[in-house]
Design a protein around this nucleic acid. Sequence first.
DNA 1: CCGATTGTTTGACGAGTATCCAACGATCAA
DNA 2: TTGATCGTTGGATACTCGTCAAACAATCGG
Lengths: 106, 106
Amino acid sequence: MPDEWLPQPATEDIQLVKVLHALGDPVRLQLLSIYLEGREVSCAMEGLGLDHLHKSTVSHHMKVLREAGVTATRVAGRNRFVRLRRDDLDRRFPGLLDALLKGLEG
Amino acid sequence: MPDEWLPQPATEDIQLVKVLHALGDPVRLQLLSIYLEGREVSCAMEGLGLDHLHKSTVSHHMKVLREAGVTATRVAGRNRFVRLRRDDLDRRFPGLLDALLKGLEG
DNA sequence: CCGATTGTTTGACGAGTATCCAACGATCAA
DNA sequence: TTGATCGTTGGATACTCGTCAAACAATCGG
C-alpha cells in the first residue's frame, strides 16, 4: 500500500499572510528550524526542544503549519513524517526560506 | 525643535518571531506593502485600502509594527510619519524584506 | 481663544488561540 | 488476541487579539 498524505493546500493557493501567521509563534518557528535541517521528523521525537509541551499541543501546531502550506505530512503506519515544502515555498516566495534560515541562525 | 521619534526596539533587539507575528495579519501586511513603496506615510492618509477600519484600529496596528521593530515613527506636529526600518531589517534579517516584497507582488 | 484636525488611550466585546487532559482509532509487536 | 505506541479529536480553560466607540491630548488655523 502506497504512502498516504494528509491534505494540504496546492502550491498556488499558499498565502503569504497565512505562512507568516503560522510562523509568528515561538513553537512553530522552533519546528521550522528543525524542518529546515532537512530531516523528516516524526511527531513524538524527543530532543526537539518541545518536551515541555503536551503531544496534542505539538500535533495542533503541526496541523497549523500543514494547513498554511509550510509542511507536508506523509502517513506511514502509526507514524507521520513531516517535511518542509521547500520547493513549493521557494517557487511561491523566492528567498523567503533562505532569509528565515539565516535569521534563525543569527 | 528637532523631530521626535516614538520608542522602538534597538536593531539588535528585533526578534524574528515578533516580526513574523506582526506581519501575519492582513491589515498589517497591507501596511507593509504601502511602506515598501518607500514613501513616508501619515496615519490618516486616505486611499490606502484601509478606509473600512476605525482610526484607532489603524493606530493599534501601526503600534504593533513599530514595537516589533518593523517601522519607525517620526512625530512632526499633529502628524506621525511612518517609514520602514529597511536598513535595520536588512542588516538583521538579510533578504527577508526583499522576499516579502516579491511575495506581495506575486 | 476657539474650533477643527490628528492620533492615542481606554474600555468593552466577540473571536480566535495555546494549552492541557481524557478518550479514541489505528497500527504494530509479541 | 492482547497490550503498547503514535497521533488525532473533543472539551475545558485562560489568554491574546482585532475591532469599535468614546474620551482625551496635542497641534494647527483663524
